[in-house]
């Protein structure tokens, strides 16, 4: 009795402590929301006034050009659509390619796998700022500049994702695969029916990360897209940089709007962080 009461109290204390720490991490988000309903001059005011005396909803109307409120149409809706499109395609593509390759690197004992994998890792070590111009030249040569394919084709493969999935499959006991082999299952069947279900938590976190990367990709989108019809959200945020000042209120209204799909992806992804999958998989 007393033991479990003590446990409960401990749990509450730990929750409060960590919750407090976690709360500090919402601060930028709260500031974003707060700044997004302020007049430009009040945004950088110190001390920070978290809840302004007024709610300047006009900022959102301007960003989305609702009722012609905007000084000009920032085409934010179109950018939003472009961003969602690219991020979802790349999410699906790279989760698929990473899960395939990660499994092969972890479990299939093909020759040269360590060398190939190390070569993979090595390419992460060159900063993207340096490969930007070569990539641009290549896309230009292929006639792809000015299309979304410049962001989609490279986005279908991620090395970090492959690495993540490899590590994930490394944790899976070999017995599972061996017993399936004995039953005469093909490799692709083992992958699809045994491994993918086990890897769901890893795939889910990969999906979230990939979505975010694509969602926030700035430098590639900046250089590869050169027409407002193709712009993604990070590029359309530069609309709010004036000559002498950045309109942080509008930047933050746009950024807050941009968080909605991220939340949705996160909440969907969280559903796959379920315990005890391994046990279930062994039985099934």
């Amino acid at each position: 009795m007393t033991y479990s009461v003590k446990r409960l109290i401990n749990r509450i204390l730990v929750t409060l402590l960590i919750g407090g720490f976690a709360f500090t991490m919402i601060v930028p988000f709260l500031w974003m929301i707060s700044a997004s309903i302020k007049l430009p001059l009040d945004v950088m005011q110190l001390p920070i006034k978290w809840i302004p005396d007024y709610f300047y909803i006009e900022n959102y109307k301007q960003v989305w050009n609702i009722g012609g409120a905007a000084i000009r149409d920032y085409q934010f809706g179109l950018a939003y659509y472009n961003s969602v499109k690219i991020a979802l395609i790349n999410l699906a593509g790279s989760v698929l390619t990473s899960t395939l390759a990660g499994y092969a690197f972890a479990k299939i004992k093909f020759r040269g796998r360590t060398a190939v994998f190390f070569l993979y890792l090595a390419t992460m070590m060159i900063p993207p700022q340096v490969t930007l111009i070569p990539k641009f030249v290549m896309f230009n040569w292929l006639g792809l500049t000015g299309t979304h394919l410049t962001l989609i084709l490279p986005g279908l493969v991620t090395i970090t994702g492959t690495f993540l999935m490899r590590q994930f499959f490394m944790q899976v006991p070999d017995e599972l695969r061996e017993s399936a082999h004995v039953d005469g299952a093909s490799e692709i069947r083992i992958w699809a029916q045994i491994m993918v279900p086990i890897a769901k938590p890893g795939m889910a976190s990969l999906a979230m990360i990939v979505f975010l990367w694509n969602w926030n990709n700035y430098l590639d989108a900046l250089v590869f897209l050169n027409n407002w019809r193709l712009y993604t959200i990070p590029i359309s945020l530069t609309n709010f940089i004036e000559e002498s000042v950045t309109q942080y209120n509008l930047v933050m209204a746009a950024s807050s709007s941009a968080l909605v799909p991220v939340f949705i992806i996160f909440l969907i992804g969280q559903r796959f962080f379920v315990k005890g999958l391994m046990a279930g998989a062994v039985k099934g």
């Binding site: 395939l100 390759a101 092969a104 020759r111 490969t131």
Partner: peptide, 30 residues
């Protein structure tokens, strides 16, 4: 072993293509 090798490379093929084109080429250029 050869069969295993083939299977392995088929699994990483999509990755390899993307990797060669969009990562390795610019890297060698740099």
């Amino acid at each position: 072993q050869l069969k295993t090798d083939l299977t392995g490379y088929v699994f990483i093929l999509p990755n390899i293509i993307g990797f060669l084109l969009f990562t390795l080429v610019p890297m060698v250029f740099s």
